[in-house]
């Protein structure tokens, strides 16, 4: 990867640099070492928790990541919550009233949500709510409150206002995905035998819909949602760039342009570790909520 991203030296030295300066810095950064050596140095430092110094900011990478992480995580969780709550509600609604004008409208709109690229949705929302209506801020995170090392924007009014547009932008795709998933699963469950028996027993619609149908629908939904949470964090890059959201995604884009190799490598490491962790958690939760797996495991 390091070979293809370009040369950080040009960005680190000013226009007046001499060839001697370039050689000196290259030597200092270890860029002249063979590829294997560089990789080994990176690995051994990383194992000791030392991710290096950012070429762009001259600060330890770990410190920068820790500073930026809360913004991304808050954004990801808020948008995940929006996506899950709205997605499940709309999914259940469109499944129960599977025909009708409102259902068709929701389904059509959800197609737009799936097919429009994130940056375009972001720009459209900014244009509408920030420029034309002047209700919400177009960029940034608002005022933040520091709680230990964690900075949160969820406790101030400007912070809450600032998170609305990016959270919707980031969560829209997941929301439509969850909605369609809940709908199709639920339609399938509704035609299952035990639902028909429940109906035959004369149980109220409410109980059938929510106690029996929805519960059985949620098993695959949780799997998908869990995996999607990882991609929400990973793909916050575009949303963060559009809204100048000071999270790790924006940091990554800046780093790619500057060829800030230590930050890029650490970010990618972090994202992969996070994906593995989330998959593990989803697998564990899956066993907890689906009794069939436990019985099989015991047998």
């Amino acid at each position: 990867m390091f070979r293809f991203v370009g040369d950080p030296i040009e960005n680190m030295l000013g226009q007046e640099r001499t060839d001697a300066d370039i050689d000196r810095l290259r030597e200092q950064l270890g860029l002249n070492d063979p590829f294997i050596m560089q990789y080994w140095n990176f690995l051994s430092d990383a194992l000791r928790g030392d991710m290096g110094i950012s070429f762009r900011q001259g600060r330890p990478v770990v410190e920068i990541l820790v500073e930026r992480l809360p913004a991304t995580l808050e954004l990801a969780f808020v948008s995940a919550i929006i996506a899950i709550v709205v997605g499940v509600i709309l999914g259940v609604y469109t499944a129960i009233r599977s025909k009708g004008f409102v259902t068709n409208l929701i389904l059509t709109l959800s197609l737009i949500g799936v097919s429009l690229p994130t940056f375009l949705i972001g720009i459209l929302l900014i244009y509408l709510f920030a420029v034309e209506l002047n209700w919400l801020p177009s960029f940034g995170r608002g005022d933040v409150v520091q709680i230990g090392w964690w900075s949160t924007g969820l406790l101030t009014s400007s912070g809450l206002k600032a998170i609305i547009l990016p959270a919707i932008t980031l969560g829209l795709y997941q929301m439509t995905l969850i909605m369609r998933l809940v709908r199709s699963e639920m339609l399938e469950v509704m035609s299952a035998d035990y639902i028909r028996f429940a109906r035959a027993r004369g149980l109220p619609e409410r109980t059938i819909n929510f106690r029996h149908a929805l519960k059985n629908t949620l098993v695959p939904v949780i799997t998908i949602t869990g995996l999607q949470l990882g991609s929400i964090i990973a793909f916050a890059i575009i949303t963060e760039t559009v809204f100048q959201w000071p999270g790790v995604g924006l940091l990554f884009i800046d780093s790619v342009q500057f060829v800030d190799i230590p930050v890029m490598a650490s970010y990618l490491m972090f994202i992969s570790v996070m994906f593995v962790l989330i998959n593990l958690i989803v697998d564990i939760v899956y066993v907890l909520i689906d009794p069939r797996l436990r019985i099989q495991g015991a047998a």
């Binding site: 720009i123 900014i126 420029v131 177009s138 960029f139 940034g140 559009v242 100048q244 884009i253």
Partner: peptide, 18 residues
């Protein structure tokens, strides 16, 4: 002072008076 990387967002922030 706020850096705003995305050109469209930067212009939007100016248009909205932020």
């Amino acid at each position: 002072y706020t850096p705003i990387k995305n050109a469209a967002t930067r212009v939007a922030a100016l248009l909205s008076g932020e």
